Amino acid sequence: MTLDECFELGFIVKPHGLKGQLVTQLDVDDAATYDKLKTVYLALPAAPARLTAYQVERVNPQGGLRVLLKLRGIERIEEAEPLRGGKLWLPLSELPKLEGTQFYFHDVIGFQVIDATEGPLGVVENFYELPQQDVLAMRYKGQEVLLPVVDELVSHADMAARQLFVNMPEGLLDIYLNPGAHKNPNAD
């Protein structure tokens, strides 16, 4: 299993108790979707690209997106401590099915971006998960353009046509094409 075949489920916050349980923070919409995990893949901070499979013995919800995780073979705090900060991964095939026009970011990489006003703009190159919000990155007239991923701006995807429909804010493309023309007069 490689990272390209997986999605990040969350990370290990710290050991819990003396018998090898782990406090984990999930990076998902609903932690209950994963309460029957059988296997997780773990990448430690010292080797972030190397995945090791672990059988899951128990998942105990702790509220919100925190869960206590018990992995087979991790029986003592001394065995759990080195896992602190490790990232938990699952195969892409285990992602929950989405409804309607929802999509996963990895599903629309390479899709044509279609603006409601301007028409075809460019191709989705990447998504960045920033602390404030996720942003879509596309190439437009040789420039990388970032668009916040919010319902008002990213409308829907047509999976069959490989198109992502957006509503670009007025003037956003100009800012990327002519960055010097939009200086803040109060910045000096």
Rank of each mutant, 00 (worst) to 15 (best):
I12L: 14
L121S: 10
E99M: 13
D27H: 02
K70N: 06
Y54E: 13
L26M: 13
F11C: 11
A43Y: 06
P48V: 13
V145Q: 03
D174R: 05
E57Q: 08
L9W: 06
L3R: 11
D188M: 08
K38W: 08
E170A: 11
L146G: 07
A181Y: 07
G122V: 05
Q102N: 12
H156T: 08
V166P: 00
L173K: 12
G17A: 03
Q102E: 07
C6I: 01
G100Q: 04
L130V: 08
L51H: 11
P45G: 13
V13M: 03
Y34K: 10
M168G: 01
P45F: 09
K183T: 04
V113G: 04
E5K: 12
G122N: 09
F7K: 06
F111N: 00
Y54A: 08
S93Y: 15
L121R: 03
R72E: 09
G171L: 02
A46H: 11
S93N: 08
A160V: 01
V149G: 04
G100T: 07
Q21H: 15
P48L: 13
L164R: 06
D29Y: 01
K14A: 12
L98R: 06
K70C: 06
I12Q: 05
L18F: 12
Y176E: 12
D134A: 09
V23H: 10
Q62R: 10
Q21L: 15
V23Q: 12
G171S: 02
L173N: 05
P185W: 01
L136I: 07
Y140C: 14
R72D: 12
P131N: 03
G122K: 03
D151F: 00
A32I: 06
D158V: 02
A116M: 12
A187V: 00
D158R: 06
F105H: 13
V135F: 04
K183A: 02
Q163V: 06
G63M: 11
G180M: 08
A160G: 02
D29K: 09
E129L: 15
Y176N: 03
G142R: 01
K38Q: 14
K19A: 13
I175M: 10
K97R: 11
R84Q: 10
D30W: 05
P15Y: 01
I109T: 12
V154D: 00
L121W: 04
P82L: 03
Q25K: 14
Y176V: 06
F111D: 03
A157T: 07
D174F: 03
A181Q: 13
G10A: 14
A31W: 00
D27A: 09
D188I: 02
Y140H: 15
G63W: 09
M1V: 01
G142A: 02
L153E: 03
T33S: 08
P48K: 14
A53P: 11
H182D: 12
E79C: 05
V23I: 14
E144V: 07
V135D: 08
F105E: 14
L153W: 02
R66V: 15
H106R: 09
I74A: 11
A53G: 04
V145T: 08
Q21D: 15
G73T: 08
P169H: 02
E118N: 05
P15A: 01
V67M: 05
D27P: 00
Q163P: 05
P82V: 09
V123C: 02
